[in-house]
Design a protein around this nucleic acid. Sequence first.
DNA 1: CGTGAAATGTTCGTTTATGTTCGTTTGTGA
DNA 2: TCACAAACGAACATAAACGAACATTTCACG
Lengths: 252, 252
Amino acid sequence: MSQSFRHPDILKTARVEGKVTVDGLAEKFGVTLQTIRRDLSELADAGKLERVHGGAILPSGVSNIGYEERRQLNADAKAKIAKSCAASIPNGSSVFINIGTNTEAVARELLFHKNLMVVTNNMNVANILVDNADCEIVVVGGSLRRSDGGLIGNLTIRAIEMFKFDLAIIGCSALDDDGDILDFDIQEVGVSQTIIRQARKTFLVSDHSKFKRSAPIQIGSLGAIDTFFTDRKLPKPLAKKCKEWGTTIILP
Amino acid sequence: MSQSFRHPDILKTARVEGKVTVDGLAEKFGVTLQTIRRDLSELADAGKLERVHGGAILPSGVSNIGYEERRQLNADAKAKIAKSCAASIPNGSSVFINIGTNTEAVARELLFHKNLMVVTNNMNVANILVDNADCEIVVVGGSLRRSDGGLIGNLTIRAIEMFKFDLAIIGCSALDDDGDILDFDIQEVGVSQTIIRQARKTFLVSDHSKFKRSAPIQIGSLGAIDTFFTDRKLPKPLAKKCKEWGTTIILP
DNA sequence: CGTGAAATGTTCGTTTATGTTCGTTTGTGA
DNA sequence: TCACAAACGAACATAAACGAACATTTCACG
């Protein structure tokens, strides 16, 4: 298995040179181009490299392909949801905006609101709202996650605990039939829970693509949410539960 | 959707130089103008650059006009100072980088350092260093100041107090003959003082234009600084004082 | 020795990046 | 304001790169 012998070497070369070429590697190892292509495909699948025509480069920084794709996904639905959510945010509120493509869409709809105070752990949200001069922006600290511009970790939670918001706007990775709000990243879940705790009211924004998906970690229940902005009717049983919980569902 | 060997290189060039030209890139990579135009279009579509006639610039983001002007001011001197400062920063250090055009220049020179941990209260610094995959970025919280992308306030100080850095890199607004480091903004001064307190060593970066100016609030004395990176010899009396204090002066 | 699985090489139709050309747009200086 | 040159982007041709499928080699293990 000389394959596993080449992989570390390829990665090392990539780190030193910043890039690798199919031709160069084939010559270096004395194998055919196809073999190198297979190596690079595997390394790219594993996320260690990013494939380009003729070779590979180190994975790029923030807003990488995956994130850009996610942002494009259901972009129309997201914009509609964001519009109706923004309409429910009064001028003059203090609002927390969490990580996520749906929450970012809300930030875009807040560009013309007045006298806002927006607290966020999302660098993209801060960059978007810079253009609204009538909006105080507070960025909470944390480790920068290159994949989506999110700030996470202990520092983030500690900072959020110093606030009390009128309104929190959060997204999620998945939503199951019991009405449990789920996510993939344990660090992010800790942040989300803290946000809910520190907010007087919480808005959840999520397009219907999350209804069927699953994720391993629970943020909380829809019952803890005041208003849920989405783009499709909820499954009947869940809609009934929301009524009992007093959770308002708003479709655009 | 496409990717190219050139893209990361173009982005880094843009971050270091502030702009890129179609001609320059075409020559650098040995490809035709049309190819570079395609590259720039793709990068612009991805939101990583902003296209202009003849080339591209960094996306507008936080920086406003006044700030852009300040950044251009003495740009050469700043780059030189930054280079010599970066050369004194070992790989693997934990570094705090404060607000300021001089400190931002240092961040640009850290793009090829390895295994860094950079803590900053400057959104621009975070945006610059995103391109260095071998650098953990921590953003400390605070109120976003639109004029320069700085994060300031109580939250900032509280967050900084949770760290202990190998190295702090700070700038200043003015430097008087007594060796007192001065600034205009009281909030920023509090942050600067906290930074110095939490760092094992402190580097000051400042071009000579600050020598003659004055500012109302005192950050501290040059005596508390380990190394001062600048571009002109200090006035004789001050140079003598620095010698007594054990403050090293480094000219490029 | 055989055998089988994994790795590698080979072939070939398809995709992609690049160069070239040309009509259109943009910036600049009179 | 107008004219001119530079820059632009769309369209097409081409050569390189790609990946799937199949053939061959290598090597561990019975």
